[in-house]
Design a protein around this nucleic acid. Structure first.
Lengths: 327, 327
DNA sequence: GATGCAATTGTTAGCGCTCACAACTTTGAT
DNA sequence: ATCAAAGTTGTGAGCGCTAACAATTGCATC
């Protein structure tokens, strides 16, 4: 920086002012400094800057199951928005979700001196752990509705489930089962709520609830059972991967989809349009969610307030696994 | 740090020595300092440390298509290994791959002062761009075989393709087509090479090569054509997603898999075991690849030499889309 | 007890930057 | 011409840490 100042014939402070876009610099000086900067290929030292400003220009992203469709796309959105805003993005992926691993990862971020943290750990217990931390560093929790301490951002999963189940109701189905995710996942719980509410609103009893684990393997296993007992005429499956397993089980068992049983999935992964048959499902824009998380976090860094929670609305994509109840 | 020193009754430098595990500190002093640290909940300031050591303890991960199966799992491995080694992981995902976007992202990392970079951008042009950078910061390129400047780490995709095609040859197939990835991807090119070599080694002509784009949609489209002309008895598809599309096309066209045509995929995503029918494919351990990248990078940070390139060996997973040629 | 040497601890400087403040220069109204 | 106010630039200090060196201590040896 001293070198740049010398070349431009000004003081180091003026160079700093140009770098930080301070208003009171005459345009000729600014120009001279900028020329010196490009001439010398100067880049300012982030460490020195953070040391004095107490800002690292870094946002930490903490997540579990980061290779899954939802989390990885959320990360994509977060990363893009953060970089556009001139922030660095540091990631920590959790192998295993326990209060300890979460605290470890948060400590890791604190050591790094991140300016804010986005958490994508979809288990309810997470938020209790986070309560202690949020006073030290601004925090956005994906999946939480937020409160006065914690900023929340979420896809309205209940709404998505409502869309799915109402679609089945519109087609005349009454015995509508639900193959859910693990009930200790926030997303799974919200989808169960939506399914249950849609049925009770229609005056029906929500009886057939099967807890799954998100995997295709589990969908296959449970699908085989359902094919055998035929207790439902339609099945709302909590994600597309399980739906894939169900589809295969039904195929093997000679249950025709959608003639015999209708299926609705959740997520709308790109592959779902090429299942046999193409899957009716609920689409969610995770990238948008990620981007808006950063928006919320940056707002908060300026204002200090948690801000209004974000809700992204899902939409139903009708394909070929759903049909009017035949008999 | 001054506070810790005061509580422990030593100088700040002694605290620093304890923190950095310097040998010449008496065990009583060390203990006293450590107690003071926990008592005060002291964490050392990374920015100040980097400023003087000129090390940021951060590794940058640059990738394109980061939400895809391969890249996202590589990131997982990289992240885990880096964090275990006490490094922070900064990510930059490329929306679009051009020399400019790559240079931008690298500049972003340089601004941050990363100690090393892992690049997962599977396009050949990438490496030319990186040539200029590698003198400034250690760099590991996934997909590159490496040279004296650049450390390389790669899954032996050609080997994987050989396995796939030889499996088909063993089953008696002779007309073996290949639905490849975009030819400007390194991975796609290596798989094409493997397919071609396996055939020529067997004294066969590698004729039916179709260039795809990795998507299920493309697999479906091309699958429909193949179903119509029946020019091959077996198809080696360059990834599982395209294979899914092919499977659906064949199903629609009434082509039975594997009786009429055998199919081998590539990647072994968890879902592939639940395709209809379950997909024979080639498994690659991306997480291991990521972990070993960090190993290579850390070695290099110490020794300065590019190190021996890493090769991860894929393996064939036989399921139900391949069968002995019937007639 | 004096001497030398190693082990341990303390002192000082400086990494590259921004902030607070001081000093100087311009502008426009009197 | 004179002055105040605003615009522009420079100076010094210090963020929290580590490296290099200086000083002190302990301990065996003569």
């Amino acid at each position: 920086m001293e070198d740049v100042a010398r070349v431009a014939g000004v003081s180091h402070q003026t160079v700093s002012r140009v770098l930080n876009n301070h208003p009171n610099v005459s345009s000729k000086t600014r120009e001279r400094v900028e020329q010196a900067i490009t001439e010398l290929g100067y880049r300012r030292n982030t460490a020195a800057r953070s040391l004095v400003t107490r800002r690292s220009q870094t946002i930490g992203v903490l997540g579990s199951e980061m290779a899954q469709y939802g989390p990885s796309h959320t990360l994509l959105g977060v990363q893009q928005a953060a970089r556009d805003a001139g922030y660095f993005v540091s990631v920590a992926a959790l192998r295993e979700v326990t209060p300890e691993t979460i605290k470890d990862a948060i400590a890791h971020f604190m050591d790094q001196g991140v300016d804010g943290i986005v958490v994508t750990v979809p288990h309810p217990g997470t938020f209790d752990v986070l309560k202690d931390i949020t006073s030290q560093v601004p925090l956005v929790a994906v999946g939480s509705i937020g409160d006065e301490h914690l900023s929340g951002a979420t896809v309205d999963q209940r709404q998505g489930a409502l869309l799915a189940v109402r679609h089945l109701l519109d087609l005349g189905h009454q015995r509508i089962g639900h193959l859910s995710g693990p009930t200790d996942w926030i997303d799974a719980a919200a989808r169960i709520d939506g399914w249950r509410d849609a049925l009770t609103d229609a005056g029906l009893e929500p009886t057939t609830l099967i807890e799954g684990d998100w995997s295709a393997e589990c969908g296959y296993r449970e699908g085989l059972k359902i094919a055998a007992d035929r207790s439902v005429s339609a099945l709302f499956v909590a994600n597309d991967q399980m739906a894939l397993g169900v589809l295969r089980a039904f195929h093997e068992a000679g249950v025709h989809v959608p003639k015999d049983i209708s299926i609705v999935g959740f997520d709308d992964q790109p592959e779902s349009a090429y299942f046999i048959p193409p899957l009716t499902t609920v689409a969610q824009d995770f990238e948008e969610l990620g981007q808006r998380c950063i928006g919320l976090l940056l707002d908060r860094l300026e204002s200090g307030a948690p801000g209004t929670p974000i809700t992204v609305t899902p939409r139903l994509v009708v394909r070929e696994t759903t049909a009017r109840l035949s008999n």
